Amino acid sequence: MGVCGCGKSEIGQRLATALAIPFSEGDSYHPPANIQKMQSGIPLTDTDRADWLQVLKQQLATARDNHQNLVLSCSALKRTYRDLLREADPALVFVHLHGERALITSRMRMRNDHFMPLSLLDSQLADLQMLEVDETGLRLNIEQPPATLIEEIIDWTAGS
């Protein structure tokens, strides 16, 4: 979880590879209207995200029902979004990738294949609600190299 440009896709893919489990890119499930809205620099509303979150929730539920693990990248910016996703699997663990705005901005400027413009970063930062003490998860600083982040996630999940 985390705002745009924090590395959810890269870290998610690497983690899934390291654990030999499936990876699901949450952004690929946005409906065309959401993508068009974001490309136009218009932040998504809770209503815009509702159907998208339901699709992701179903992916998690299917994995749980099939006794399979899954790494899913999703911004999960608000507690209500995370609560909805946890309905599919109460044992769901969130990894919050966080970093300074300047670092995220520089990363977003370097990518040219994503629909999310830099202009929406501030709206995501405004919407971001940190993990609360009763939410299972950890917060990692994206200044660390990806390999270190993966190692920390694996170590943390092995100990929990």
Rank of each mutant, 00 (worst) to 15 (best):
S106T: 14
D89G: 03
H96G: 08
L125D: 00
A126G: 02
R86A: 12
R111Q: 09
L92H: 05
Q124I: 06
L128D: 03
P117I: 05
R109I: 12
G99C: 03
V95T: 11
F115C: 04
L92V: 11
A102H: 09
V93Q: 10
Q129I: 02
A102R: 07
L128I: 08
Q124M: 08
L128Q: 07
D122Y: 03
L97M: 04
P117V: 03
S106Y: 11
P117F: 08
F115I: 07
L118T: 01
L97S: 01
L92E: 02
L97Q: 00
T105R: 13
L103V: 13
L121D: 06
R109G: 04
H114M: 08
S119T: 15
D113E: 14
I104R: 11
L85Y: 01
F94D: 03
L92D: 03
L121V: 08
L125E: 01
M108F: 01
Q129Y: 02
H98V: 13
D113G: 15
T105S: 10
N112F: 03
Q124N: 12
A91C: 13
M116N: 09
D127Y: 01
R101Q: 12
Q124G: 11
R86Q: 08
Q124S: 11
D122T: 05
M108I: 02
R111Y: 11
D127L: 12
L120P: 11
A126D: 06
R111A: 10
N112Q: 15
M110A: 15
L125T: 00
D127C: 09
E100Q: 15
N112L: 05
A102S: 11
N112A: 07
R86Y: 03
A91K: 15
S106M: 13
L125I: 05
M110N: 14
D113S: 15
R109E: 12
L121G: 08
L128A: 10
D127H: 01
D127V: 07
L125F: 04
H114P: 08
R86E: 01
L97T: 01
G99Q: 04
T105N: 09
M108L: 13
R101V: 10
A102N: 11
F94Y: 06
F115W: 06
H114C: 04
E87P: 00
F115E: 10
L125W: 01
L103D: 14
A88I: 08
L118W: 02
L84V: 00
L92W: 05
G99T: 03
D89T: 02
D113P: 11
P90Q: 15
A91N: 15
L103K: 14
H98F: 12
R101N: 06
P117Y: 07
S123H: 13
F94Q: 01
R111D: 07
M116C: 09
L103P: 13
P90G: 14
G99A: 01
E100V: 09
F115V: 07
N112R: 09
M116T: 07
